[in-house]
Design a protein around this nucleic acid. Structure first.
Lengths: 234, 234, 234, 234
DNA sequence: AATGAATGAGTCTTCATTCAT
DNA sequence: TATGAATGAAGACTCATTCAT
């Protein structure tokens, strides 16, 4: 059997796993069901993936790669745009990703939680041994740095081309943007279901969010064409 | 057996559950261990809590209550302070809570995720039936609104006492602050472990975060005593 | 549930295990089948015995205890006999035990093999971890010494009462007798099935064996009543 | 592929199997590991050996052949020695074999156990069908007789050349010697680990054993040069 | 001949939950 | 009420064996 077939099967298992994991969550997913979904035997699943956790990490890796693609796409497709426009495009696409590929987005967030645990010797031991043994997890430990690397590149580009305030520190600014993004995504789901007196219109909320974002990047005096930008953002 | 004794037992089980759940996580916690920790029989545990999920929801409720206390404390203790100072105090204490009571904070975030799933009819059916059957979960569905309620009160107070920009919309502003807080907390753990070229000093990162926060509340022209505020914040 | 009932159930599982283990051997015994045989659930089996290996070790302990009883019985029942007669009685009963309770006898021999492995640091690591973790195994490591202890007592008694050659060393003599016994038992099964020219009559073989045994204990000059003793021996 | 190559492969698999079986035991050996060790595919292993049990029986056959070689070597190399010296030489080499090739020796003992089971119709059905189907097992059923055949030849030679008591019955005597050997080997491992009051010096124990052996063959009056013989024996 | 991917029955083991006492 | 023994469904994982290529 050639490398190609092998990859095809691995991919097939992965796709089945993504389906089941996203429907039931890691805890309630049964390897048996993944195998059935992939139209393969349970044994073959274990031939390709050492354990349930290993398979899950493979899924997370796939999720991370797609998430990273959003960042890469911003760089490659936005070559003739300003850095600021790149950031807007990135934010736009990350939010879209969090909606369209909710499970992948959740997986990326979960990975971040895992990495945090891994970094602290005290909490590292709470991570399941099968995860620690997974090759995919170790690949992810390295890959995770790609996100800030690309993000900082984009911010730096904006600073260089003067579309972003020159006094900003690229690294800090990227983390600021990203943390806002993370928080925004986390909260937006619940806002619509608040009782009437607390409920704010989703559009209003988005506008405020983007206004702050632009102020951070452009400075407070910035206003022209703001509406247009917002229109593109959401 | 009187009501008091019954409550005492319930509390004892809850405390044991908090300890074990926080150490091992929901999935890897065994009811047996919780009962042993509580120096009670497994059967009694089931007398007080209908299922493992029910017990977990009771734990989440406790977590939520403590989290809400942070908000309440801000209102009660900060009566003679400005609304702006209240916000700073709140942010300060929420971040401390996320560190000191990490498990409770995670539980609150998890609850938000659950609530999001519950609100969408499509994802509601993915929630485990034992959770849907838990009385604690249904209490939480109502209680969750307390957070934005209190938060909006604080912002409104600041607007009234002129310590916060009068043109701000209280509800929107509260969500903005809270989403930033959420995102900040989520990211701060990983920043220290970035490779050298991406690493930013934790202090720098905090300063930027708080600077933006103050700009949002006070407007861009605000600068005096900023350093002092930062000192109190972290 | 009282201690008595608990012991009864443990005994019931043990008896089922003895039946299945002796029929199929450790490797081919399924815990499922043991549980069914004991008319109990699989889970309960695991409640009483930590693992298949633990259960097996419990069986070996039972086997060892019965084997040791043969030795104890010799001492207690043969108080008014000479030491020499005790030895003859012991040999007689051990051989009977090896026939009547073949599986128990095999288990005792297997235990000796395990103990040998355990004593050598090089081979100790080849022992299955579940065996090393079994409380029964550790009890057996201590209990095993009872056999030579009792055996040496019997030989010593014979030396004191002059029914055994006074120049003999009790410890050495006991091991000599026991090793002969072991070897005899191991071989007697195959002798009857040798081809005609090699086949020896079982009786002849036994006579030779016992003659040597008596010579060892009584000295070469001993002959009177030998036939009578042999008659009793087999 | 020629006959030679085929034999070479078979040998290679056999050698790998011997290594793994002796390290882990039949139960814990996986065919996969044997194949890897032999640098062959699992499929090819099954081409040469019908089942795991069949492979194991092939290993036992190899063990038996080497064991038989010890007996044959005694006959061929000791042509100009007396039969008594042959026996001493044989005993010496069998004990050495049991130490140097422990796994082979254990395999031979295991074979004896299997043969015993096979001879009794009651226990025959307990033998795993794959063993009963193995051609190697059936070859061994015939080959096993070689041991007593050669052994009896040696004793007979000693009787003829007057180096062994003429009144002895060759067959009986051989079995007596062999059973002593078997028992001695089985016990010598444990003696060193007895508690102090039971412990006897290994040398003392050997001396007693050999003294009895010589008395059996030479008669009780024999003593000259005994020490020298012992020196050679161990 | 040779490979090694594929199979899937078979195993041990766990643990939430129940229920007789 | 309280206990903890008992249940048994469920699940992860193994590995001897087969077979398409």
């Amino acid at each position: 059997m050639g490398v190609y077939e092998r990859q095809q099967r691995e991919k097939k298992i992965l796709e089945a796993a993504i389906k089941i994991f996203s429907e039931k969550g890691m805890q309630y997913t049964r390897i048996d069901e993944v195998a059935t979904q992939a139209k393969m035997s349970k044994g073959l699943t274990y031939f390709y993936f050492k354990s349930k956790e290993d398979l899950y990490m493979a899924v997370v890796k796939k999720a991370f790669e797609e998430f990273r693609d959003v960042f890469n796409k911003t760089l490659s497709k936005g070559k003739d745009q300003t850095g600021f426009d790149n950031v807007i495009y990135l934010v736009d696409n990350v939010l879209e990703f969090s909606v369209e590929k909710r499970f992948f987005y959740e997986s990326v967030l979960h990975l971040m939680g895992l990495v945090n645990m891994y970094n602290d010797p005290e909490t590292r031991k709470l991570i399941h041994s099968s995860i620690l043994e997974s090759q995919y997890f170790h690949k992810l430990l390295i890959m995770q740095h790609d996100i800030p690397t690309i993000g900082v590149k984009i911010i730096s580009k904006g600073i260089r081309d003067n579309s972003i305030r020159p006094e900003l520190h690229p690294e800090t600014t990227f983390y600021l943007v990203w943390s806002m993004l993370t928080g925004y995504e986390r909260l937006k789901g619940s806002i619509e279901y608040e009782p009437k007196d607390l409920k704010i219109h989703a559009e209003v909320w988005k506008n405020s969010f983007v206004k702050v974002l632009i102020e951070i990047l452009k400075g407070p005096q910035y206003t022209p064409k703001q509406a247009a930008v917002q229109g593109r953002l959401f």
